[in-house]
Design a protein around this nucleic acid. Structure first.
Length: 289
DNA sequence: CCCACACCGATT
DNA sequence: ATCGGTGTGG
């Protein structure tokens, strides 16, 4: 299906640290969600998006039944100060991964880590899954990841996450095959609280899983980028201070009060703007001499 | 409730 | 040397 660039920018969606296993192709992107292969091809004025074998998979993954333009309009009407951020990143959307276990393990990999290395680690885990077609695999089961040894993971560059990854998979699996999926039916706060009981999962990782894996769009993952942005804009008295549990909650609650169900979307534009600003700073080719 | 520190590898 | 979430201990 064709999607206008006003509604979708696949580059932003797939490079913004929401999912880690999509690869660039000559004319776009290819990757897996659940058991479906998703393709995005850049065309005049937008993107040609498709998925197989399930043709509706791409629509669900990118949440294409929702209008990003409408969502942005609502965000700006609730907080005019965000207008420059949504304008700058048109087509950035909150994704919805169908496998919450992939989201969980991906964000356990993300702890104390940068997008490049997270990508490498998550793709290493992905290499253990069933191959759908050449080079494209389902994410492995919790049981498969539970069986990995800390030594094996450490030897493959996971560092101390080599301990938390199998531990998190074991705990999630022990809670029952449909435990993670059942969190979709709970209120956001209850799902968040249960996720926090998994080893290696703190408030930030729990919010990433809520937002991208479970569809709880009140979730606001507060990482250092969002913390810096939010303290500058809304909590100047906390600027330069560290994130404590109560400050973490206060930032999220402020977004939820202001934006309700769109808190997670609002956070995404502010978050990605800081990620970009940082990437630019790290590539000074032009400016050095 | 807040702070300080360890954890590991990437980057400077 | 600094940076980054979680877990632990003061």
């Amino acid at each position: 299906m064709f999607v206008s660039e006003k509604e979708l920018n696949a580059d932003l969606c797939l490079e913004s640290g929401q999912v880690f296993r999509f690869q660039r192709t000559r004319d776009g992107w290819i990757g897996v969600d659940g058991s479906d292969v998703i393709r995005c091809k850049r065309v005049r004025g937008g993107w040609e998006v498709s998925s197989s074998p399930n043709a509706s998979a791409a629509r669900e993954f990118f949440q294409l039944e929702r209008s990003a333009q409408e969502i942005c309009k609502q965000i700006v009407s609730l907080a005019g100060e965000l207008k420059p951020f949504v304008a700058k990143h048109r087509g950035l959307r909150v994704l919805r991964q169908s496998r919450a276990d992939e989201t969980l393990l991906s964000f356990v990999c993300s702890v104390n880590n940068n997008i490049e290395r997270i990508t490498r680690l998550v793709n290493w885990l992905g290499g253990l899954g069933r191959e759908i077609e050449r080079g494209l695999r389902e994410f492995p089961s919790l049981k498969r990841i539970e069986a990995l040894t800390e030594f094996e993971l450490r030897s493959n560059g996971f560092g101390y996450r080599g301990r938390t990854i199998p531990a998190a998979a074991r705990e999630a699996a022990a809670r029952g095959a449909d435990w993670l999926d059942s969190l979709r039916q709970l209120p956001y706060a209850d799902a968040h609280e249960q996720l926090m009981q998994v080893p290696g999962v703190g408030p930030k990782v729990a919010d990433c899983v809520c937002l991208i894996g479970l569809g709880h769009e009140q979730a606001v993952p507060v990482d250092t980028h969002l913390w810096n942005a939010a303290t500058e804009m809304y909590f100047p008295e906390w600027k330069g201070k560290s994130v404590t549990a109560s400050r973490y909650k206060a930032v999220g609650d402020m977004f939820r009060d202001k934006f309700g169900e769109l808190a997670g979307w609002a956070h995404q534009y502010l978050f990605y703007d800081r990620v970009l600003a940082r990437r630019r700073r790290v590539t000074p080719v032009f400016f050095s001499q």
